[in-house]
Amino acid sequence: MPLLPVADAQARVLALATPLNVEQVPLSVAAHRYAAKDVVARRTQPASDLSAMDGYAIRHADLGQPLRLIGESAAGRPFAYPVGAGEAVRIFTGATMPAGADCVLVQEEARAAGGTVHLDGEGPAHPGRNVRRRGLDFTEGDVLIAVGAAITPARLAVAAIGGHATLPVRARVRVAIAATGDELVAAGEPIAPGQLPESNGVMLSAMLAPLGVEIVDLGILPDRADVLEAAFRAVDADVLVTTGGASVGDHDLVRPALEAAGASIDFWRIALRPGKPMMAGRLGRTVVLGLPGNPVSAFVTAELFVKPLVRHLAGAADPFPPTLTAVLGEDLPANAERTDYLRAELRGGAAFASTIQDSSMLRTLARSSCLIVRSPHAPAARAGDSAEILMIA
């Protein structure tokens, strides 16, 4: 059976699920979600002309002559009367422009004495100077957040000022994570010969945390078909992520246990390095992704498949991680038949691949800030050539 290209595998993973149901949530809990509908402004901002500077609201036609000071306009306390010929109103940044005034004489270019304001500089160059016009930011009916856009802190702010107290988002994605293997023990526990601290669970949970998911920690499951099958049958989640046991060795029991629990497997081998033995399928309503147990392989497959799937379920318009272009800091050999994701560091604007790319080197991954993407059968590259990279830190 030929290996599945990465892009085809990604498309098939997303095809296993549709975005979750829409719910309306308060702004305070909407961060890290995705807009399920266009968020439209319910008001105009600013709602009226505002001063952009501290100074005096005047008529530009009166510039240069002494002006009678008739009042004050501050934020939240507008001056209630119009400005007529030869008059000025003391005004502060963010305050409403009084009717009749069409510009602001900044205080550094003004001199006030005895209730009269005099020009003491060049003054505003034209009508409208130092004024934030009504609707400068947006007007009622404008789309503030497009459907599928991530709800960032700035977008929360624009939604609030646009008149919204709640936002339409997809339901929070529930992800169950299970590590499998008799050799695994909980981090920090005493280790017997042949055992290994379990690290994938905490890594994957941290990778998914910025996406606002609900994590269901299934812990460490032993290499026992009956235990695995029972655990998988009991899963109540949108996504089940397993690590380890996804290959075809005598002790790789995840696939048969999933099938015994009622899962259908869509694919299980990808033209990818590291991470070839990754599995995808469905168990009832749950999408199942079986990642390799090797932490580096688990990390790369989580970046390429788990996180995009979660974003897709959460309603992201573009769930895949963006790639950038960087300059190679050193020569790279020709690539073989699989897409290769080389752990690398950005130094001085150039990408340097780690000398040893063995997928067991977790410390190498910890030092990396990006992955250099090498297409199948890519020719040798030289330092200074452009390369595609995926940022990971």
Rank of each mutant, 00 (worst) to 15 (best):
P78Q: 05
R77N: 09
D102R: 10
G76T: 15
V104E: 05
V89E: 03
A95H: 08
R77Q: 15
A88I: 15
A85M: 06
A88L: 14
A95P: 03
P98V: 00
A99P: 02
P98N: 01
A88E: 11
A101G: 07
P78C: 04
T93A: 15
S73H: 06
A75S: 08
A95C: 04
A80Y: 01
R90P: 03
L105K: 08
G94Q: 11
G86V: 13
Y81P: 00
G94T: 09
D102V: 03
T93P: 00
E72I: 09
M97V: 11
A101S: 06
A99L: 14
Y81L: 13
A95D: 10
G76N: 10
A101N: 09
G84S: 07
A95N: 04
A99D: 15
P78Y: 13
A85P: 03
V104S: 06
V83Q: 07
V83W: 11
R90E: 07
I91N: 01
A95R: 11
R90S: 12
I91V: 15
I91Y: 01
G71N: 02
P82A: 14
A101E: 10
R77A: 12
C103H: 12
A88K: 10
V106L: 04
A101I: 14
V83N: 09
A95Q: 06
V106C: 04
A99G: 13
V104L: 13
G71I: 00
A101L: 14
G84N: 07
G76P: 09
P98G: 01
G86L: 14
M97G: 02
D102L: 05
A74Y: 04
A99N: 06
A85D: 13
G84W: 03
A75F: 07
E87S: 06
P82W: 12
G94F: 04
L105H: 07
Y81E: 14
A88C: 15
I91E: 01
G71Y: 01
E87F: 10
P78L: 03
D102Q: 09
V83H: 07
E72Q: 14
C103E: 08
D102M: 07
Y81C: 02
E72D: 07
A75C: 07
G71K: 00
A88N: 11
F92Q: 12
A101F: 06
V83R: 09
T93L: 09
A85H: 09
T96S: 09
G86I: 15
A80Q: 01
T96I: 15
G71L: 00
V104A: 09
A101R: 12
A75G: 02
A75D: 05
M97F: 03
S73Y: 05
S73T: 13
L105W: 07
G76L: 10
G100R: 07
Y81G: 01
T96C: 07
L105N: 06
Y81D: 13
V106K: 11
P98L: 00
T93H: 08
V104I: 12
P98F: 00
M97L: 15
C103Q: 11
M97I: 15
G84H: 06
T96D: 13
G76D: 13
A99Q: 15
L105A: 04
V89P: 05
G100L: 05
A99V: 13
V89H: 03
G76S: 12
T96L: 06
F92K: 10
C103W: 13
V89S: 04
A74T: 15
A80L: 01
